[in-house]
Each structure stands twice: as C-alpha cells, then as structure tokens.
Simulated scan of single mutants.
Amino acid sequence: MLIEPAEIELGGSRTWISNAVSVNLVLFGPAAPFAAAPVEKFVLRSVVSAALALVAVGSGLTLMMTQTWHLIVLRGGAPRRSS
C-alpha cells in the first residue's frame, strides 16, 4: 500500500523500496535482545527518551528525502510521503 506512493515520490523502484524495509527488519530484529543492557545500566526513562529522540529526528529528516537511498538511511523502511 505504501510502495506505490514511495515509488512516485522518490522515483525509485520496488526493489529499492523493498530493500529499505529489509534494512529495517535486519537492524531492529537482532538489536531487540540487546536493548535491555542500556536499560539495566541507565534509567529506563533516559533510554526511552533517547530512543524517541532518535526516532523523531529520523522521521523529521524524511520530509527532506529526495532519493530512495535516503529512505534506507533515515528510516530503514516505512516510507512517509510529504505533501
């Protein structure tokens, strides 16, 4: 449902858009078990605040995407169409 609008907006192919989703799955899946270590070392509120700040920066930068590789670097998937 989101691939076609991303193709139109970014001018990329379905392969590039699918690669962005793959990067998302490859990074977030294996990283999940290691997320507990910073929570044990630091306060939960600090870890969650830092993670949300990083997500907010990445999401905000997607408004300036002009090429497909930007999607892969900034979000690792979940294309966002600017209006």
Rank of each mutant, 00 (worst) to 15 (best):
residue 32 A to I: 14
residue 48 V to H: 01
residue 44 L to N: 01
residue 60 G to W: 11
residue 48 V to W: 03
residue 59 S to W: 13
residue 40 E to F: 05
residue 38 P to Y: 01
residue 35 A to K: 00
residue 24 N to M: 11
residue 18 S to P: 00
residue 28 F to I: 13
residue 60 G to P: 08
residue 54 L to V: 10
residue 7 E to R: 14
residue 40 E to L: 13
residue 8 I to G: 04
residue 19 N to F: 08
residue 42 F to N: 06
residue 67 Q to M: 09
residue 13 S to K: 03
residue 13 S to C: 02
residue 32 A to C: 08
residue 16 W to C: 00
residue 51 A to F: 12
residue 64 M to I: 14
residue 21 V to P: 01
residue 52 L to S: 11
residue 31 A to R: 07
residue 36 A to F: 01
residue 15 T to V: 03
residue 52 L to V: 13
residue 38 P to H: 03
residue 42 F to A: 05
residue 16 W to D: 06
residue 32 A to G: 00
residue 6 A to T: 02
residue 23 V to D: 05
residue 37 A to Y: 10
residue 10 L to C: 06
residue 17 I to D: 01
residue 7 E to F: 05
residue 53 A to N: 07
residue 63 L to Q: 15
residue 58 G to V: 03
residue 13 S to E: 08
residue 44 L to A: 07
residue 23 V to F: 08
residue 30 P to W: 15
residue 15 T to M: 02
residue 57 V to A: 11
residue 18 S to H: 02
residue 43 V to R: 12
residue 14 R to L: 01
residue 9 E to P: 00
residue 10 L to P: 05
residue 48 V to M: 13
residue 66 T to F: 05
residue 5 P to V: 04
residue 41 K to G: 01
residue 28 F to V: 14
residue 61 L to E: 05
residue 19 N to M: 11
residue 29 G to T: 15
residue 7 E to V: 14
residue 36 A to M: 08
residue 51 A to R: 10
residue 59 S to N: 14
residue 54 L to A: 14
residue 48 V to Y: 05
residue 9 E to L: 09
residue 20 A to Y: 03
residue 38 P to E: 02
residue 40 E to D: 09
residue 15 T to D: 02
residue 15 T to I: 06
residue 21 V to G: 05
residue 16 W to H: 02
residue 38 P to Q: 04
residue 28 F to P: 03
residue 29 G to Q: 08
residue 62 T to W: 06
residue 51 A to L: 15
residue 45 R to A: 07
residue 18 S to F: 01
residue 9 E to H: 10
residue 52 L to R: 08
residue 33 P to Q: 03
residue 58 G to K: 02
residue 36 A to I: 15
residue 44 L to I: 02
residue 29 G to M: 12
residue 55 V to N: 09
residue 41 K to M: 07
residue 57 V to F: 10
residue 30 P to A: 12
residue 5 P to T: 03
residue 65 M to P: 08
residue 31 A to H: 06
residue 33 P to C: 04
residue 66 T to L: 10
residue 22 S to W: 08
residue 41 K to T: 11
residue 47 V to H: 00
residue 53 A to C: 14
residue 34 F to K: 00
residue 22 S to K: 12
residue 16 W to V: 00
residue 44 L to K: 05
residue 21 V to Q: 12
residue 8 I to N: 12
residue 30 P to L: 14
residue 56 A to W: 02
residue 51 A to I: 13
residue 67 Q to N: 13
residue 19 N to R: 12
residue 59 S to H: 13
residue 57 V to E: 04
residue 31 A to W: 04
residue 64 M to E: 11
residue 6 A to M: 03
residue 22 S to G: 11
residue 12 G to S: 12
residue 21 V to Y: 10
residue 65 M to G: 09
residue 24 N to S: 10
residue 18 S to A: 12
residue 5 P to R: 01
residue 61 L to M: 15
residue 50 A to E: 04
residue 35 A to S: 08
residue 12 G to Y: 06
residue 10 L to T: 08
residue 55 V to Q: 10
residue 27 L to D: 09
residue 24 N to Y: 13
residue 46 S to K: 00
residue 37 A to M: 08
residue 44 L to Q: 02
residue 12 G to Q: 06
residue 13 S to M: 03
residue 66 T to Q: 15
residue 7 E to D: 03
residue 40 E to K: 12
residue 62 T to M: 15
residue 15 T to G: 00
residue 37 A to S: 07
residue 43 V to L: 03
residue 39 V to S: 07
residue 29 G to P: 11
residue 56 A to L: 14
residue 40 E to C: 02
residue 37 A to N: 05
residue 42 F to S: 06
residue 60 G to T: 12
residue 49 S to F: 11
residue 33 P to A: 04
residue 26 V to D: 00
residue 29 G to Y: 09
